[in-house]
Amino acid sequence: MSKERNMLSVWFFIGVLLTIYGAVILIASISNWSSPSTAVLAKYHSGVWEGILLLLIGAFYVLRFRPRPKHKKYD
């Protein structure tokens, strides 16, 4: 039914949020690079890796499920 109603895919929403999160975490982690937090194992800069991971997953879902004129997959 929603195929006809052209509902945005749930995966698209996920992709958008994860992409923004990835950017925020990456920027926050890079800006703290020279003064790492007091967290245990901060030397591994986990925020940078997490940010990249989120960006990659988010970008995949945004591109794969972005709204198109003739939308076929809704979920």
């Binding site: 925020v24 975490i25 982690s29 703290n32 967290a39 194992l41 986990s46 925020g47 997490e50 940010g51």
Partner: peptide, 12 residues
């Protein structure tokens, strides 16, 4: 979470 997460990751 507080033990391992830095800014941003903690928020997540």
């Amino acid at each position: 979470l507080a033990r391992y997460a830095g800014p941003g990751v903690l928020g997540l």
